[in-house]
Design a protein around this nucleic acid. Structure first.
Length: 581
RNA sequence: GCGCUGAUGGUCUAGUGGCUAUGACUGGGGCCUUCCAAGCCCUAAACCCGGGUUCGAAUCCCGGUCGGCGCACCA
């Protein structure tokens, strides 16, 4: 059994991850999060919220998981994401049908599937691999398509990323943030891609959870006001160049910006934030790196893109976060399709006086002369130069006809005007997290097997322990009466209530021996176990056991929920929680 | 989607054309038990689905589903 198998086996058995629809045989690409899995996932998402929503101030929004066609036409998902595929009937190899004929037809990518089939048949094109016969061309689009409303309702698609929900709300968001760059919005939610053959458990799903931030920044100022927070942070960078040499480089983010490895401060800041986040939820620092997209793999609209990658036992380096500078591509695309200007007015630090040549047609005179064509005439006049306007009789083209107008229908002058700002289209910095992959990596990195000696004279035995960060552990404390006896159960239940009142997720367990219960909790990563014994009845103290060290301290019951809370969320060390045993 | 390969209680697993389908762990109930998977008793729980061959299929054949690996795909 490799580590992946061990982790998945435990995840299934203990209620972290289940194959969806198992009752009916299951379907590839879908997973259920069980009771502990949902809780762990939510805790990871909550820390993400803390980092992005609370700390960065990028408020969370929620948009539909179904989108209308226009949105994905603009985003490029309808056209660009639908490739004509064609398979060999003999060897089964799949090819891009348009690529097969692009030497024969100039506009191969503009042909319909039928036309492609015709070209293939007419030119007797065979499988490039085995010379076998080719099947019919079909469109393969990775979006799930659906209908909105009954009958021939509007076409809709399950969103392939949450990002578009933020882009289409750009103007509303800009207003919400009082038109000041930079601002950002975030969204945590499900996205859908109809993968051809999903594999690798939760690494490639058809329905998955993304946490994305779209940060709108000034295209002329990609510095970050708080860059000092991460400037000295050392990260593992696998840049385009470094990939050529196959050598990951460690450097501080400050250096990386300085020497041009990372395009600019804003991107570097977010690489720092991602590094910080992943380690906080328990990803091992030396199993992490940032890999830069190579020039040829980068999406055409991005100018720099870094993936956070995590090393896993079976799958090697897995991409879990993409941090891209998407420039103004998305806003421009939506502006074009929606016919709406998606820009923001930016005031200059001080107004600029600009001298310009201004033409003012006299509409009172042009009206009677040109009637309904007066507006065209005015526009024609505006496009003339000073020299042309200074002629005694001015010649203009109106509706394809040359006309002559007297000089007094138009006034013109050099004017100095005050310009206090301009409309700019912000650039977008996008950190995009794949939560399910991060979830798996968190479990794998927390998973440990160790040999421990149990009772005296007994042999060493294997202990499986999930060393989850205390903050993400689904069950936070276990309440264990040492023996299944009424007099111990009563105070145990009271402590359980104290914990619940403090908002701590507690698991009460009185079945089986104490050792068995400790191990059960080790396996699900419960950081602390509280045991109630006969001394409790004497002096109202209990023991707290630390998951990782298996050490115990003795602590008064009074106020114990606060102590546990401080150990999980605060800085309190286990050793300070009571008297060491 | 193609090729190879596999599928037996919750988990891991034995097994074979023919008895009531093996075992361990786990779970539940109980006895016992004063801190790390102890012991004893009881108990629950499985042959992936559909067809075919056969007197008889969990076993053989075909198809499907799911998993793994390789190829392709991963905007």
């Amino acid at each position: 059994m490799d580590k992946y198998e061990q982790v998945i086996e435990l995840a299934k058995r203990r209620g972290f991850l289940w194959n969806s629809f198992e009752l009916y045989g299951g379907t590839a690409g879908f997973y259920d999060y069980g009771p502990l899995g949902s809780t762990l996932k939510r805790r990871i998402e909550q820390i993400w919220r803390e980092a992005y929503v609370i700390r960065e101030g990028f408020m969370e929004i929620e948009s539909p998981t179904i989108g209308i066609e226009d949105v994905f036409v603009a985003s490029g998902h309808v056209g660009g994401f639908s490739d004509p595929l064609c398979e060999c009937k003999d060897c089964g190899e799949a090819f891009r049908a348009d690529h097969l004929v692009d030497k024969i037809v100039a506009v191969a990518d503009a042909l319909s599937d039928k036309e492609l089939d015709n070209v293939i048949t007419e030119n007797n094109i065979k499988c490039p691999e085995c010379q076998g016969e080719l099947g019919k061309t079909y469109e393969f689009n990775l979006m799930f398509r659906t209908n909105i409303g009954p009958g021939n309702g509007r076409t809709g698609y399950m969103r392939p990323e949450t990002a578009q929900g933020m882009f289409v709300n750009f103007l509303r968001l800009a207003r919400f943030y009082r038109e000041k760059l930079p601002f950002g919005a975030t969204q945590i939610g499900k996205s859908y891609r109809n993968e051809i053959s999903p594999r690798q458990g939760v690494i490639r799903l058809r329905e998955f959870t993304q946490a994305e931030a779209e940060i709108f920044i000034d295209p002329n100022d990609k510095k970050h006001p708080e860059f000092s927070r991460f400037a000295d942070k050392e990260v593992s960078l696998y840049s385009d160049d470094a990939q050529e040499r196959e050598k990951v480089e460690k450097m501080t983010l400050g250096e990386a910006v300085e020497n041009g490895t990372i395009a600019h401060e804003f991107l570097a800041y977010h690489i720092g934030l991602t590094d910080h986040f992943l380690q906080r939820i328990g990803i091992t620092a030396d199993k992490m790196r940032f890999r830069q997209h190579k020039k040829d793999e980068m999406a055409h609209y991005a100018i720099d893109c870094w993936d956070a990658e995590i090393e896993t036992d079976r799958f090697g380096w897995v991409e879990v976060v993409g941090i891209a500078d998407r420039t103004d591509y998305d806003l421009k695309a939506h502006a074009a399709i929606s016919n709406t200007e998606l820009s923001i007015y930016r005031e200059y630090s001080e107004p600029r006086m600009v001298t310009q040549f201004v033409v003012k047609p006299d509409m009172g005179k042009l009206g009677p002369l040109f009637k309904s064509k007066a507006k065209d005439a005015a526009n024609a006049l505006k496009s003339l130069s000073r020299e042309e306007l200074e002629q005694e009789n001015i010649t203009i083209m109106v509706d394809g006809e040359a006309m002559t107008v007297p000089r007094d229908v138009v006034k013109f002058a050099e004017e100095t005007v005050k310009i206090s700002g301009e409309n700019i289209i912000p650039h977008v910095i996008e950190p995009s997290y794949g939560i399910d992959r991060i979830f798996y990596a968190t479990m794998e990195h927390a998973f440990e097997e160790e040999m421990v000696s149990g009772k005296e004279d007994s042999e060493e035995e294997k202990r499986i322990v999930m060393k989850l960060e205390k903050e993400v552990a689904p069950v936070q404390v276990a309440i264990l009466p040492l023996l299944t006896r009424e007099e111990l159960i009563i105070p145990a239940k009271e402590i359980e209530k104290q914990m619940k009142d403090r908002g701590i997720l507690v698991s009460y367990d009185d079945s089986g021996t104490i050792g068995r219960r400790y191990r059960r909790n080790d396996e699900i990563g419960t950081p602390y176990s509280i045991t109630i014994d006969y001394d409790t009845l004497e002096d109202n103290t209990v023991t707290i056991r630390d998951r990782d060290s298996m050490k115990q301290v003795r602590t008064p019951v009074e106020g114990i929920a606060d102590i546990v809370y401080e150990m999980i969320y605060g800085n309190r060390k286990f050793e300070s929680a009571g008297q060491a045993l």
